[in-house]
Computed example of a mutant assay.
Amino acid sequence: MSKVIIIGCGGVGTVVAHKCAQNPEVFSEIVIASRTKSKCDAVAKAICSPNVTTDRVDADSVDDLVALFRRHKPELVINVALPYQDLTIMDACLECGVNYLDTANYEPKDVAHFEYSWQWAYRERFEKAGLTAILGCGFDPGVSGVFTAYAAKHYFSEM
């Protein structure tokens, strides 16, 4: 069982929080954090579980994220915030030794430009820290499925 922080409380964040809460054997504690705490409180109330708490965070600020992570000590951060906030969240995860998962890929705030190169640049830092970073697991489900099938066939004896 592990503690998870979900960053972002829009439509996707709401679904993620509900899905995590349905699996208490995996997610023993859930913290929903966003810029607007009242939105997080409403989702937590709808879930109606003592395992779900809320907090406020500015995902544009590494310092704010680090303070959140140090306060709650999660094992995993699920990032469903805005795509231009991915790198600050990844930086905070590295600083605090927390595993990272997101559902989209980074894009600069003022330019619609989808690619993983910015996040892939973090690969060695996460590896050296002994942390996992899973990227784009919701944005590109088709290609994620292809990569998983390829890895299962060519690299793993079992999964």
Rank of each mutant, 00 (worst) to 15 (best):
P50H: 13
N105S: 11
L82M: 12
G97M: 11
V98Y: 05
T148C: 12
L87Y: 02
I47W: 09
I5Y: 00
F114N: 06
R56H: 03
E127T: 11
D110Y: 10
V143L: 14
E95S: 15
T148S: 10
A33Q: 02
H113T: 05
S144N: 13
D102F: 03
L101P: 02
E95V: 13
S34D: 14
V12P: 00
D91S: 13
N51E: 11
G13M: 03
A129D: 06
A133C: 07
Q22F: 04
D60T: 15
R70H: 11
K37D: 01
F139K: 00
I7G: 01
C20V: 11
S144T: 14
I30L: 13
R123L: 07
V57W: 04
K39A: 05
V98L: 06
V66F: 06
G142M: 00
T148W: 04
E107Q: 15
T54C: 13
Y84M: 12
E25G: 14
I78P: 00
W118M: 09
G142H: 14
K19I: 12
V4N: 03
K128W: 03
A129N: 08
L131D: 01
P83W: 06
G8N: 08
K128C: 09
C96W: 08
V52N: 03
R35V: 08
Y84F: 15
F69S: 01
A151P: 01
D91K: 09
V143H: 09
S144L: 14
V77N: 00
W118F: 14
D60K: 12
T53N: 11
V143F: 09
N51V: 05
V31M: 04
A17V: 06
G142D: 13
M90F: 03
A121D: 15
A17T: 08
A67R: 11
I32D: 00
P83M: 09
V4H: 02
Y84Q: 12
S38Y: 03
N99R: 08
K128S: 14
L94H: 08
S28I: 05
P24K: 12
R123V: 01
E124Y: 03
L82F: 10
V12C: 04
H113E: 12
K19E: 15
L76W: 14
D55T: 04
T36L: 09
C9I: 03
G10N: 09
